[in-house]
Computed example of a mutant assay.
Amino acid sequence: MTERSSPRGPGRPRGGKPGDLRARILAAATAEFGERGYEAASMRAIARRAGVDPALVHHYFDDKQRLVAEVVEAPLRPDRLVRTALDGPLDGLGERLVRAVLTAWDSPTVRPAAVAALRSAIGQGPVARMLREFLRREIMHRIAERLDDVGDPGDAELRAELAASQVVGVIMVRYVLEFEPIASLPVEELVARVGPAVQWHLTGRPPGS
């Protein structure tokens, strides 16, 4: 009796070597993000451009956020950092955000590629546009949603952007410009100094009010 082969699971690779298929999907994602931006690009459209089944895209890349990280070779997932920081009480959110970001960027295996990704985001061209849309959707929007139930809901987005501007400023000075003494301060000292300012922007209330 002929031995039957085991059935393929959904999304398992077929029609090419795994490495080739993965590279084809990444090339298609780069083109799709470049032409349409992060918001308009879809996993289905990327699969169509790559000539593969959409389930195969999900097999190699869990979601669109993972694809963005792979396209720009980002060593960390800022959307996951923010999601973890948001998973807790509003009190202390500013400190959690600052601590999560600085702890990740302090890793010597993360910093070089993270700095390169940041420079791409503030540059010109389709990759820069895609990165900015990703950061706005997956970070700013998520923070603003968390702030809807505190302060004036009409300025939740403004408060989220003001808070983010504080964090991005520290990143630029500490990791890109490498100005002292900020470049050498311990993470917890920066958290203690910057966290309350970020919290103020998030809630719209000065510390101690």
Score class of each variant (00 low, 15 high):
D62A: 15
D62S: 15
D63A: 07
D63N: 13
D63T: 08
K64M: 06
K64S: 11
R66P: 03
R66A: 15
V68R: 03
A69Q: 15
A69L: 15
A69W: 11
A69F: 12
E70Q: 15
E70L: 12
V71G: 02
V71W: 09
V71L: 04
V71C: 06
V71E: 06
V72H: 10
V72F: 15
E73L: 05
A74Y: 07
A74N: 12
P75A: 07
L76K: 07
P78G: 06
P78E: 07
L81F: 09
L81Y: 08
V82D: 10
V82H: 11
V82S: 10
V82Y: 13
V82I: 15
R83I: 11
R83C: 11
T84P: 05
T84I: 14
A85S: 14
L86P: 11
G88I: 13
G88Y: 14
G88D: 14
G88F: 13
G88W: 14
P89S: 14
P89G: 12
P89L: 13
L90P: 08
D91W: 07
D91A: 13
G92I: 04
G92T: 08
L93R: 08
G94R: 05
G94V: 07
R96Q: 10
L97F: 07
L97M: 12
L97K: 03
V98W: 10
A100V: 10
V101T: 11
V101S: 10
V101D: 10
L102M: 08
T103K: 05
T103F: 06
A104F: 08
A104H: 07
A104C: 09
W105K: 04
D106I: 03
S107K: 10
S107H: 14
P108F: 06
P108N: 05
T109V: 08
V110Y: 04
V110N: 04
V110M: 02
V110H: 04
R111G: 06
P112H: 12
A113E: 10
A113F: 05
A114M: 01
A114Q: 00
A114H: 01
A116W: 00
A116F: 02
A116M: 02
A117G: 06
R119E: 09
R119I: 00
S120Y: 00
S120M: 05
S120G: 11
A121Y: 00
A121Q: 03
Q124S: 15
Q124F: 13
Q124Y: 13
G125R: 03
P126H: 10
V127H: 01
V127Y: 02
A128F: 02
A128P: 02
M130P: 02
L131M: 09
L131C: 03
L131N: 00
R132C: 01
E133V: 03
L135Y: 07
L135H: 06
L135S: 05
L135I: 05
R136E: 14
I139S: 04
I139R: 02
I139M: 06
I139Q: 07
H141K: 11
H141F: 13
H141W: 14
R142T: 13
R142C: 04
R142K: 08
R142W: 06
I143L: 06
I143V: 11
E145G: 04
E145N: 07
R146Q: 05
R146A: 05
L147E: 00
D148Y: 10
D148I: 08
D149I: 02
V150W: 03
V150Y: 03
V150T: 05
G151N: 04
G151A: 01
P153W: 08
P153E: 04
G154E: 10
